[in-house]
Amino acid sequence: MNIFRLTGDLSHLAAIIILLLKIWKSRSCAGISGKSQILFAIVFTARYLDLLTSFISVYNTSMKVIYIGCAYATVYLIYAKFRATYDGNHDSFRVEFLVVPVGGLAVLINHTFSPLEILWTFSIYLESVAILPQLFMISKTGEAETITTHYLFCLGMYRTLYLFNWVWRFYFEGFFDMIAIVAGLVQTVLYCDFFYLYVTKVLKGKKLSLPA
């Protein structure tokens, strides 16, 4: 454990909780892509199956359980409890264009050709692109609530901090995982445009709105 990994995990946790609280307090999931949230639930489920096979630490297990629980709670709020507020018309990204190629890639490029390992790889690849339906939705509506941008910032920062963690682990532990590193780079790059808007607009007190 190093500071980048810890702050990355906490940033991830903050993102998940910000989103849950936003939906719960406003009793609405307007502006939130249910498709991205389903993809994240799939990501956590596929990746954390090792909860059943190996134990790493109390921290590791607790975080995994919290992430999975929150992911399903979020999906439940969007598609069941506050379904009436879900903006399905603007959530029109075709997720099969992500899931199918990513599934194929996981079968082709993995560390070990075993079911659990392929599912882990699938989850890493899928996570890197899972935010695309959300970003697509924002580009379609041309705006995002400020609280939604805080969510996206924390979520994007988490993988960015992990990149520093991987540099750290390579130098001090000789550890590197090429699949996670490449996917993490892709994931971070996808947020760059958003990071720019967040810093230049939201942090200066303006609402995030895109030119028509």
């Binding site: 090792d50 190996s54 590791n60 975080m63 882990w120 590197f176 995982d177 699949i179 996670a180």
Partner: peptide, 10 residues
């Protein structure tokens, strides 16, 4: 390199 089946990150 990678220690297979020992993914200790989240």
């Amino acid at each position: 390199g990678m220690r297979v089946d020992e993914h200790d990150e989240l």
